[in-house]
């Protein structure tokens, strides 16, 4: 007892803080929250405010005020509306293609491959995630350009690849974000208890029936968790469209091209991907998939 008091006496700050959990919490959380809320969230909020401002047509300066024109233009300018719909469809397509590849890959890795093949594949799928974003866009351009690798390799069998257009945008985005879908799907399939497969086959189900009736329903949460990435990362992208899409425009293209000329329009348009992503996250949360991320 006496030692404790001497120690408390020799460490006044520690002793003081030890009794005051709230103060300790505040000390920990104050600076990070100041950074994220005071810098980032404030910036997003200021962006929202700017979306209601307008540009003086003569001086091209941003004038504070209140107008809904920027938001209305999203829905009334045909080019803007079609770009939003196109972007949404591209993001959904990327997600669908990723699922289509991730499920067989996951089944192979989790249930068929030997342990060392499984581990090697897990590394092989994760590694390209870190190879660099622009690097992968360049690589896809090199492969699919007119006289590139793809057309060269498949010329003998008379196939020519997609040109720089929407299909290649979908393919490139899939290339970029596929690991985010593949990894959670693989983990989920691995976690399915083996006796479920035994039960299924005992009851006479063949391989594909088991996959369709047992595996798929169990990995839906993992698919949704993965799709949060494939969907939202594709939704906000515009460099892929710029470099592999020919003249394809996405929401990001409109934001990027307006930020210097007309910041309020860019600001209003930024709310479109934010809205899509938030709606998607809310839907995902209802299914309880977010805890798996």
């Amino acid at each position: 007892m006496s030692t404790q008091t001497t120690n408390a006496g020799s460490r006044p700050i520690s002793a003081y803080l030890y009794k005051r959990a709230k103060l300790r919490l505040f000390g920990l959380i104050a600076l990070p929250m100041f950074w994220i809320v005071g810098v980032y969230i404030l910036s997003l909020f200021l962006l929202l405010i700017t979306a209601f401002w307008f540009v003086d047509p003569f001086t091209s300066k941003v004038i504070p005020g209140f107008t809904l024109d920027n938001f209305i233009s999203i829905f009334t300018v045909p080019a803007y509306l079609s770009t939003s719909i196109r972007t949404l469809l591209i993001a959904l397509a990327v997600t669908a293609v990723s699922v289509l590849f991730a499920v067989p890959l996951g089944i192979y890795m989790a249930k068929i491959a030997r342990p060392w093949v499984r581990n090697a594949l897990a590394v092989a799928i994760t590694l390209p995630l870190w190879a660099g974003y622009l690097v992968k866009i360049i690589a896809m351009r090199l492969v699919f350009t007119e006289e590139g690798f793809f057309n060269w390799a498949l010329a003998p069998i008379g196939i020519s690849g997609p040109t720089f257009s929407i299909p290649l945008v979908i393919l490139t985005l899939t290339y970029l974000w596929f690991p985010y879908m593949a990894l959670p799907v693989y983990t989920a399939i691995r976690q399915i208890p083996p006796n479920l497969f035994d039960a299924s086959s005992d009851m006479g189900a063949k391989g594909f029936t088991t996959i369709y009736r047992v595996v798929l329903p169990l990995i839906v949460p993992a698919i949704i968790a993965g799709s949060v990435f494939t969907f939202s990362l594709s939704l906000g992208d515009y460099l892929v469209a710029k470099f592999t899409g020919g003249s394809t425009q996405m929401i990001g293209s409109i934001i990027a091209s307006n930020i210097n000329l007309n910041p309020p329009v860019a600001a209003a348009f930024s709310m479109v991907p934010i809205a899509f992503v938030l709606i998607y996250l809310m839907v995902a949360r209802r299914t309880g998939s977010l805890e798996r991320m």
């Binding site: 929250m33 980032y40 997003l44 200021l46 906000g236 934001i255 990027a256 600001a267 992503v277």
Partner: peptide
């Protein structure tokens, strides 16, 4: 909420984050 706030900067598209900062720096 704190957890969500930490994840938000990579969950939102890069173009939105970039434009938000650029707008704060240049317009404000």
């Amino acid at each position: 909420t704190v957890n969500l706030l930490v994840v938000l900067p990579i969950a939102l598209p890069g173009v939105v984050t970039g434009v938000a900062f650029s707008n704060t720096y240049n317009t404000f």
